[in-house]
Design a protein around this nucleic acid. Structure first.
Lengths: 338, 338
DNA sequence: TCTGGCACTCGCACACCATGAGTGCCAGGA
DNA sequence: TCCTGGCACTCATGGTGTGCGAGTGCCAGA
């Protein structure tokens, strides 16, 4: 097992490397942190840490840098989450409170996260499946053409065109609208299918086809989790990646363009708290030299979506985790209020 | 004035440089294009072209590369727009036709443009101001809280919360909804203010406050051109910029994050046809080493928004212009159909 | 006005070398 | 058993020097 001091050495290496972006040697370590031992001792510790796979040296005559495994140990055991200061928290709140609608909330959150962490920010729109229905609206655009508008408690609006098999009267439309809303308003999306099952039976035979069509469109909309949108920002921060960035940046940019990849990335985080995935822990190959810090957020007690940042494995984990956590908390508040 | 042959030399230089990404010398030129003259003659022509500022040499003993002014001449006088081939056109159409809603149309357009041109694609959402109203919907979320939903002929949906000064009855709501739609449905946004001006007078005194509030929210929504959204994609193509890309990519990424900058960029294009802005012709400093190819598109005969691509000044102008034009045309068709 | 020839320039690639940070290992001491 | 100082070794880095060759400008002749 690793002694207390060796863990301390690892912590020092991570901190120095994150700060300087250069391999750190034994002498520099003893100078910058008062470990109470000589460089030679540190060298022995370093050799042990290297044997265990926590650090590595890029070249024989260079200092050490942490491996993914080293960062993992650092995050799990050696570092806490650095809380935001009071002024920072106030700034976050002020910035988010100016938002006028859901799009704006998400856009502001992305900007904020990118600025706070100086990394690439990813924010998922509140997902439909865990939300509740606020209102369903039906509009007749033409005799046999309806528009279905679904409004969620998070302020999200989805619309779909519905081509009816037969013309649909204004009275029937009002009837359907009223019945639909009385059944599903305020209910969770997952409950909706059961609630509307028998609805067509309440209508005249000639209207049943249309009612069924409307309902199936509604259910489709609910199920379509593909439609989970997200917004990213702060890609300019990718240039902060380091000297080797021209090689690394390409696959990262490509990965960021794939919504599917990003959604999976955020989706994998299962913990209630902040999740950190380091380097090769990320399934996607292009992101093997990045770390992802993510967390769920929600309007109530429950998470309805995720947000996070993508940055180099060499990042300030405590600070980033603190920023991500704080932003998630305040976005949740804002959503609950609106 | 420049002789015919010198223009031919310039064209050859641009074509070779775009292809090879390396300064092109007199000998290589005569070998790859049969100009019918010797390298020495070409050298004289090059010296003349350099005097006029159309080309430059990065180092004394290197070949020539086109300047912004050179590209400008090339685009204006020497190159046409390369039309898409029939299979390409079919592919574009197929790809766009699968779209289910406006967001999807825009998202697909971005992907398509980025893939076709291998550059960064920017697509503006159809702007509200030039569109017409398809429908206005009012929903009571609470006795004194309404949601205003505006649906445009391009399929765009905008929603706003309205806090009423006084409770608003269901009957009044239906009345307002009906009057509002009978006046503005099918009308252009710019005409709406005049059309609803006297509307509050038709209501009881107690409801007038609410009606006015609703109307002013509606007008705000119409005017709010800040809300012009856009979508970008293909940023991974920035890595294709060339050897000096680490220096150039940063400001470009930063510029791309500024919606305002991008909107201005697209907005500046006034021509009915494809507009090309080369290097320093772009007002924004970060984009001084890029060219922007943009064009308007619309559902009817009239342009309601712009789209375009951002790439290195060293780009295949004829091909890019052809792709941009073709995509704009088909997006217009899709919007008109839906 | 075009062409071939010629001298000149200068960036680039490669080799060479000195420097120094950093390491591993070992023997002696607490 | 663990820590320490010393020592030889490794090797990336940066600076200098050199030969090569692509490319140029200019000039005299057709």
């Amino acid at each position: 097992m690793l002694s207390e001091r060796r863990l301390e050495v690892l912590r020092a290496i991570v901190q120095d490397y994150v700060g300087t972006e250069e391999p750190v040697g034994s002498k520099a370590l003893t100078e910058r942190h008062n470990l109470g031992v000589s460089p030679a001792t540190v060298r022995n510790d370093m050799a042990a840490l290297e044997d265990e796979g926590f650090i590595a040296q890029p070249h024989t005559s260079a200092g050490r840098i942490p491996t993914d495994k080293g960062y993992r140990l650092f995050v799990d055991k050696l570092a806490g989450v650095k809380p935001m200061t009071a002024p920072e928290r106030r700034a976050i709140q002020n910035f988010l409170e100016g938002a006028v609608d859901l799009d704006d909330v998400v856009a502001r959150t992305v900007r904020l996260l990118a600025q706070l962490t100086r990394q690439v920010a990813v924010v998922q729109y509140p997902s439909l499946t865990r939300s509740t229905v606020r209102h369903v609206e039906l509009l007749a655009l033409a005799p046999a053409r309806l528009m279905l508008v679904l409004i969620t408690d998070t302020g999200r609006v989805e619309q779909r065109m519905v081509d009816c098999p037969a013309p649909f009267g204004e009275a029937s439309l009002a009837d359907l609208r009223a019945r639909l809303n009385s059944r599903v308003a305020g209910r969770r999306f997952t409950d909706v299918p059961a609630l509307v099952e028998e609805l067509p039976e309440a209508f005249e035979a000639e209207d049943r086809g249309t009612v069924s069509t409307v309902l199936s469109t509604l259910l489709e909309t609910l199920v379509e989790e593909n439609e989970e949108r997200l917004m990213i920002g702060g890609t300019a921060n990718l240039t902060r990646f380091g000297h080797d960035f021209p090689l690394v940046i390409r696959p990262v940019l490509e990965a960021l363009e794939e919504q599917v990849v990003l959604l999976k990335l955020l989706g994998e985080a299962k913990d209630p708290g902040v999740t950190v995935r380091i380097g090769h822990e990320n399934a996607h190959e292009g992101l093997n030299s990045t770390s992802v810090v993510s967390v769920g957020y929600g309007s109530g007690g429950e998470a309805v979506a995720k947000l996070g940042v993508v940055g180099p494995t060499r990042m300030d984990y405590p600070g980033t985790m603190g920023a991500v956590r704080a932003v998630a908390r305040y976005v949740g508040q804002i959503l609950a209020e609106s």
